[in-house]
Design a protein around this nucleic acid. Structure first.
Lengths: 155, 155
DNA sequence: CTAAATACCGACTGATTTACTAGGTAATAG
DNA sequence: CTATTACCTAGTAAATCAGTCGGTATTTAG
């Protein structure tokens, strides 16, 4: 898994789109304004998002972007993979026997961890984030209620 | 959170150290050999790890590195933060009122998600990974037991 | 004591990525 | 038609990545 600032920009932009796109398309100019991301950089990100059908563009005046699927069908992992090109990590991935064991064992461990992180992010949808926040308004003063919902597929 | 290839190298190296360092220090030359990471790059990574007391170096012949704490006291988040310098994400972080709401809402959502990812990685220790793998040997042939690697995002 | 092994340190480097600018073309609404 | 928007390509300064090179400091072995 690769979670860079580029992925952050993409997730942030998609969140903005999910929040503001309920009644019509949202222009990149609006997202740029809202989130402080340059327009052209958004264009690059949305080209990648569009190629994975995560967003749908409408040209012309009154145009902009819709989500390509429902909020609940778009996971955070989807978004990050779309812009970060998801390179495979393990170079020996089970196929080669990779210098005898010690190395491959470590790679297997890393691969397992990497999959866990991926699954964790694949389980969180845009809709989750949006709904979670709406429900949070009341409990705002009582500290952290949102975090650590213990998706512990470890162990 | 920032999970780059640099963090991967660090976690991989620390895993190697946890696996091979039971009976004495492990040299960077060995880790370099085992994991295919250049010696000088390892030196850079271990300088950062050392500054956070995650490893302890011993000079001279027969020297090398020990873990700075027990396997169970070192989390994956610790390792990644040590080498990746953990920059803060939200620029407006509750203090400023940040252009009126829509933007800050999105930032809050991102911040929550970021905390979740961090907590997830903070809950996995080196010891967890090592033990998890040892217990896996038996069930190896019965497919995947630890992780569902049905990463079907590439479609 | 000497020599080798090792950690430790700093400067430099090509390649890649990041985030952005500039300058377009294509489609569509009014 | 014209304005607005998506969509596309090329370029770029800065940062980061992963590495080389050339050292110094410390400790063990002979």
């Amino acid at each position: 898994m690769r979670l860079s600032t580029k992925g952050r920009y993409a997730v942030t932009a998609m969140l903005d789109l999910a929040l503001n796109g309920k009644k019509g398309p949202v222009t990149l100019a609006e997202i740029s304004e809202n989130q402080g991301i340059s327009l052209s950089y958004l264009e690059q990100l949305f080209a990648a998002l569009r190629s994975k059908d995560l967003v749908r563009g409408v040209r012309g005046p009154g145009g902009g972007y819709y989500l390509g699927k429902s909020e609940d069908e778009i996971s955070i992992a989807n978004i990050i993979c779309a812009v970060d090109e998801w390179v495979e990590f393990t170079r020996c991935g089970g196929r080669q026997n990779c210098s005898g064991g010690a190395r491959c064992l470590t790679h297997t461990l890393w691969d397992d961890l990497s999959s866990e992180i991926f699954n964790f992010l694949a389980d969180i949808s845009l809709g989750d984030l949006v709904r979670r926040n709406l429900g949070k308004k009341d409990e705002e003063e009582s500290g952290l209620s949102v975090v650590a919902n213990s998706n512990s597929q470890a162990a």
